[in-house]
């Protein structure tokens, strides 16, 4: 599903190049549960953003579902975000002006899902994450853990085939983290591909494969 070949990414610093990713090759198949690990500043987020096509790369080749990413149009990418990929961020990234309910509902709106069906789907999610009571609150009225649950609920509501999660449990206590990891492995068992960035060996253990990054290079 994901095929990275000799990917380089750099930012110019003065006259020189500061490499964020160097000669990185990686294949991830459908149904895998991959954990990306490595010290802070090693390029984990950068890699995840490249995989998620949020960020560009400077050299190499990247095929997503056998399509060359650098030839993709914005429309195609939008289509993938709509139906295929769900993002979970360390900083949650909820829309401040929308309630919990409305935040979770948002992806469905862009897929033209009918009102009644939307209602049912959102209700399901609220139920599943035990946040029914919070549905009319705004993000700033929630704790970090609750916000992340909402973020995950929103990422899952469109039933993506791939979940990209950047330190999803970074701001949560261990109990909340465990809860989220359980959800991930449950999803993975249903066939959803999961790529997560994590610092925790324990969380990485939920996955089937660990990729160790150092200075923009894969070390294992």
């Amino acid at each position: 599903m994901i095929d990275l070949q000799h990917i380089f990414k750099w930012v110019p610093v003065g006259g020189a190049r500061n490499f964020l990713l160097r000669d990185l090759s990686l294949q991830i198949g459908e149904g895998e549960f991959v954990s990306i690990m490595g010290p802070s500043g090693s390029g984990k987020t950068t890699l995840l953003n490249v995989i998620g096509m949020l960020d560009h790369f400077d050299e190499g080749e990247y095929k997503f579902l056998h399509e060359e990413v650098h030839k993709m149009k914005e429309k195609q990418r939008t289509q993938l975000y709509k139906q295929y990929i769900g993002f979970v961020f360390q900083a949650y990234h909820l829309i401040d002006e929308l309630t919990v309910y409305e935040n979770i509902e948002t992806p469905l709106l862009y897929q033209d899902v009918k009102g009644s069906e939307r209602k049912a789907l959102v209700a399901d999610m609220l139920d599943r994450f035990n946040i029914v009571g919070k549905k009319d609150l705004f993000p700033n009225q929630l704790s970090g853990g609750q916000q992340q649950l909402v973020g995950i609920a929103r990422a899952l509501i469109a039933k993506p085939k791939l979940i990209l999660a950047d330190e999803p449990t970074g701001n949560l206590n261990s109990k909340q983290g465990e809860e989220i990891m359980n959800i991930f492995s449950e999803l993975n068992q249903q066939g959803v591909t999961i790529i997560q960035v994590t610092h925790s060996e324990k969380n990485a253990g939920y996955g089937s494969r660990i990729i160790e990054l150092l200075d923009g290079r894969i070390v294992n």
């Binding site: 429309k75 975000y81 829309i95 862009y110 897929q111």
Partner: peptide, 16 residues
């Protein structure tokens, strides 16, 4: 901009 970015990640196109 953050809101726009989030909306795009959630599947919003330019037209949206």
């Amino acid at each position: 901009a953050r809101e726009i970015g989030i909306r795009k990640i959630n599947g919003a196109g330019r037209l949206n």
